[in-house]
Write a protein that binds this DNA or RNA. Structure first.
Lengths: 134, 134
DNA sequence: ATAAACACTGTACCTAAGTACAGAGTCAAG
DNA sequence: CTTGACTCTGTACTTAGGTACAGTGTTTAT
């Protein structure tokens, strides 16, 4: 398995080198092994970590929440029931976000449709479209 | 239509008073009328604005993006085609977010299912679950 | 075997999005 | 008609999430 320097990882995952070291400090990604010189040695797994973090960020999760997501696992220190409960809470969070996104999307679609219409639309069609739904 | 003071609006929309003034300064919400004393007079519409902003924030939209969403409308200054194009771009954004959320959710669901399993799960089941999908 | 390109640590700086006063004026309940 | 709770503006502070050096050591391509 090929190893990557921090610079190569940064390029692959499209982030700043400093961001990687920052995530490491925050405990978001596992500390990679080092060579004798102290240089970090990353693997493909780390690319996946960084990409996961970036995606989760675009969805509005904070680094703290992302860290919780990443640490969800069944191991000798956590009971299965506990993990299950936390995971289900996260699933519920995500479902709520999906719901809101769907309603925003529907509002925008109504706006696009209304576009074929004549004159100017109201003060704030998005808000109006939102209200006409929930 | 009942008017609200800034304090009442803050309570209804569950935000800090300063946040409301901040949004006004940023041009995210329309400037409300004032009484002679200078006190702001809000209406129900403003509650909707604030709530929209809060929801959009939880979905990872920046205030700049939210401002773009709020200003999407057909009026004498914008051509219909322009609005349509911008709205469709936003719809695509939202669809992408929904996709990612669905994949995260599926990963968590696989974790919950695996929970009925025996021993400890792997280093990072979420990542693994993500990879086993895309 | 040496220069250019990297990496290391530590500390300082930056941006977005608030949040908190200070000092002064306003409202409303008793 | 006053007093406690609000509100106003303006400016300063805070927190999260990076980003940028400075000074020093390491690789690697020639």
């Amino acid at each position: 398995m090929k190893v990557l320097t921090i610079g190569q990882l940064a390029k692959k995952a499209q982030v700043n080198i400093e961001t990687i070291r920052y995530y490491e400090r925050r405990g978001l990604i596992p500390e990679p092994p080092r060579r004798d010189s102290g240089y970090r040695q990353y693997s493909a797994e780390h690319v996946a970590y960084i990409q996961f973090i970036q995606r989760a960020k675009t969805l509005g999760f904070s680094l703290k929440e992302i860290s919780e997501l990443l640490s969800l696992r069944v191991n000798p220190r956590t009971t299965c029931g506990d993990v299950k409960q936390r995971a289900e809470a996260k699933i519920a969070d995500m479902e709520e976000k999906i719901q809101i996104l769907e309603s925003f999307k529907a509002a925008l679609q109504r706006l696009v449709t209304a576009c074929r219409g004549r004159g100017p639309t109201s003060e704030c069609p998005i808000l109006e479209a939102m209200n006409s739904q929930d």
